[in-house]
Simulated assay, not measured.
Amino acid sequence: MNLKQLEAFVNVAEKRSFSKAARELYLTQPTVSAHVSALEKELNIKLFLRNTREVGLTDEGEKLYQYARQMLNLEQLIYEAFDSDVASNSCIKIAASTIPAQYLLPDILSRYSSMYPKEQFELVESDSAGVIRAVSERTVDIGFTGTILDKKSCEYVPFFDDELIIVMPNNEKYRQIKETETGIEWLERVPIIMREQGSGTRKEAEKQLKREGIDIRKLNVVANMENTEVIKQSVKKGIGVTIISKLAAAEDLKWENVLAYPLGEKKRVRKLYVVYNKEYPRTKAVKKMMKIAETFKSELE
């Protein structure tokens, strides 16, 4: 077993394709297949389940992947410790939940690319639970998330204050609600579209509703959706109201496509976080990314 074999295996696992892994590593597909076959023979296990469209990990493959990914991360840290040229052309792996990924990271990554043009990054979008799991399992270097989950290996650093608001269709019924209502008890009388379970937005919305005395079980939740843009389109079509980031609704509010209503008497703000695995040394790339996020925060304050 050697690092070249593990690198080939990890790339196939992450890209779910031998051909894509070969392109990533600048190898031929038979060479990648040979590396994987050598591992399977040495360990006497089957690593992948293959079909006509993609490959997936077996249970044994999942177990090996966790160890192999950590070994490759440690290899990168060794290069960085000795200022190797390999480290200067590194690829930072990022996981981000919906709101940071779609509305904040484009600016942060643009600054990163301008400052470090030789460095690459790879971005995966997930819900907050998936982001934190990826950071905890070290399948990514850094995460951006909208909530904190109990993972002892994870350190959370706030970088943005995000306000959650109620977003409503811009029609006569909801214009009247906006003009006449003073609380949010009316939410129990209207259809509501929620983010999916595992979403940081949903977790924080439910937390804030409870603070306002709303019994979540009494809400008429007509749909659970993963995509914020689909949710906004559904609100515009009159399917229901939703609770989302003011940042995500800004453009539609500007053009009066939807209406905004405060989530309670007080302004309700949640923190968005940079998250990293504190059980491993942060790479130089992670430190630089965090520094840019910190600067981004100070500019907005």
Rank of each mutant, 00 (worst) to 15 (best):
Q120Y: 15
I148Q: 12
A129Q: 13
I108Q: 03
I166H: 01
E122G: 01
T182A: 08
I132H: 05
Y116C: 09
T180E: 14
V131S: 07
F144H: 05
V124L: 13
G130W: 02
E122I: 06
K173G: 02
I165Y: 00
P169C: 07
V131A: 07
I165Q: 08
E181H: 09
T180G: 02
K151T: 13
L104M: 12
E179R: 15
C154A: 15
V131N: 04
D127K: 03
P100D: 10
Y112C: 08
N171T: 01
S126Q: 13
G143M: 09
L104Y: 09
T139M: 06
I108W: 03
E122V: 06
E172H: 09
P169N: 04
A101K: 01
S110K: 12
D127Y: 04
V140Q: 05
I165K: 10
V140T: 11
K152M: 11
T145K: 01
N170D: 13
K152N: 13
F121Q: 09
P158S: 03
E163P: 00
E122M: 12
S153A: 14
D150P: 01
Y112N: 03
S126N: 11
P158M: 02
Y116P: 06
L104W: 04
N171S: 01
Y174A: 03
F160S: 00
D150Y: 12
D107W: 11
S110T: 11
S128D: 08
D161Q: 12
M168V: 05
A101W: 03
Y156G: 01
G143Q: 07
M115I: 14
S110M: 10
G143Y: 06
Y116H: 13
G143I: 08
Y112F: 15
T139W: 04
E122S: 14
Y112G: 06
Y103C: 09
D162T: 03
L149F: 06
V135L: 04
P117F: 07
E155V: 10
L109W: 01
I166F: 02
R111S: 13
D150N: 15
Q176L: 15
F159Q: 02
G183F: 03
P117I: 06
I166L: 07
K151G: 11
R175S: 10
R133C: 10
P117T: 07
F144K: 04
E179Y: 10
V124R: 14
T180W: 00
E181C: 11
Q102P: 00
I166K: 03
K151F: 15
N170V: 09
K152L: 13
S114P: 00
K151I: 12
N170A: 12
I132N: 11
F121I: 11
D141R: 05
V167R: 00
P117M: 05
S153K: 12
A101S: 14
C154W: 01
S153V: 08
T139Y: 04
T147R: 07
S110Q: 09
Y174L: 01
Q176I: 13
D141F: 07
V167K: 00
I166M: 05
S126P: 00
F160C: 01
L149C: 07
D150I: 10
D107N: 14
L105Q: 08
R111L: 13
Y103F: 15
A129R: 14
K178T: 13
N171P: 00
T180F: 09
